[in-house]
Design a protein around this nucleic acid. Structure first.
Lengths: 208, 208
DNA sequence: GCATATTTGTCCGTATGTATA
DNA sequence: CTATACATACGGACAAATATG
């Protein structure tokens, strides 16, 4: 049942998923495949149009705008909740460290993963299950956007230093400093994503 | 496919939904029923345990605590976004008016619905699709909690005046006043729900 | 524009494993 | 412990919609 992994790592956005094909590939029945498709569709990882099948979701410029609009709205709540939460700050520090060692290994795949983990952990401090699941979905969408980007190093490279700075500010208890750092992070990240999308994306846009 | 309506209005929490029974009642196949169950389960309207079937969700005291923890976290964002949004304030006023006329008719069902509509509209001003769908789910859970309460008048009665006050404060541009009014709303609402749950609930708790 | 082939949506029947009486 | 009921999963079938030539 775990083809989330396939959708999130292996397949490229825009790929059509034929029921018959998938059922053969996984040696499961078509009915079971359909149930799985419902789940993925509900998680917005695939697009499902009537009588036309399911496609791996292609996140466009509008989607990115929506994602960062939400992040700008919600992530400040995360830093508010994290200030003074020693355990959380320690875990965030560990995640940044892991990202830094990945940079040293030139493993940009896990650098991106650690960045996502970082912000998931940041929001977990809110202590709201509802918010956490929303963030989970938000970051899954973001990961789909990452898949369309050609240069992973340029994509994830700049942000481990920013996360490091954020942790330092949080550890120092500098609430407003952390907030402005966060805002700056989000602004530059969104700008870069739009640029990468405009210039060259790995896959065809395939709007139709 | 619209048995959301049934789960949200007709059936009481704790009711077991047998696949065969439902498929017969709606004249559809078990396979289709199963797909629908997956959807409802993902929306947290039903509990789905392996090999034991699906039950209409019973929201307990812990769930209510989680709901209001999230509301206290997120709804302030809604008032921040609504201050200065003339169109939104007008719509909120219309919703309160509709609730007031429902009070005059002794129609407490729609009073509760308008209360939910009110807070949905409030959060819509954030302009975040992600937040809106999260709120949608949050309020669906809350409505399930309402179903367990015996006295609808006592449940919904006190809050139309509070919503009216909130609209007035928003229209006056009194941001901090609106925030404290909101906090007070949430505190008393949660307290009342816990009380009603303790004393007498319409349905059996049926924890097992 | 039309005819054909492919694919989806829906249904039925059946087999197997699990939980409950 | 046995037996029953039920959920899970499989495979085949057909109609409807879509895509292709």
């Amino acid at each position: 049942m775990l083809r989330l992994e396939i959708a999130q790592g292996r397949l490229l956005p825009g790929t059509k998923l034929r029921e018959e094909h998938v059922s053969a590939a996984f040696a499961i029945s078509r009915n079971t495949v359909r149930e799985a498709f419902r789940l993925l569709s509900h998680e917005r990882l695939v697009d499902h149009t009537l009588h036309r099948g399911v496609y791996v979701r292609t996140v466009g410029a509008d989607d990115i705008r929506a994602i960062y609009r939400t992040r700008r709205l919600v992530e400040p709540l995360g830093v508010e909740a994290t200030v003074g939460d020693e355990a959380a700050i320690a875990e965030l520090g560990a995640l940044v460290e892991s990202a830094e060692s990945a940079v040293a290994r030139d493993d940009w795949e896990v650098v991106g993963t650690r960045d996502i983990d970082f912000h998931r952990r940041l929001m977990a401090s809110c202590g709201s299950e509802h918010v956490s699941t929303m963030v989970e979905r938000l970051l899954a969408e973001l990961r789909l956007a990452f898949l369309r980007m050609p240069d992973r190093r340029a994509l994830h490279g700049p942000y481990v230093a920013r996360n490091r700075r954020l942790v330092t500010l949080l550890a120092a208890g500098d609430r407003s400093g952390a907030l402005t750092e966060l805002r700056d992070y989000l602004d530059t990240a969104e700008k870069q994503l739009h640029n990468s999308l405009k210039n060259g994306s790995t896959t065809d846009p395939t709007p139709k």
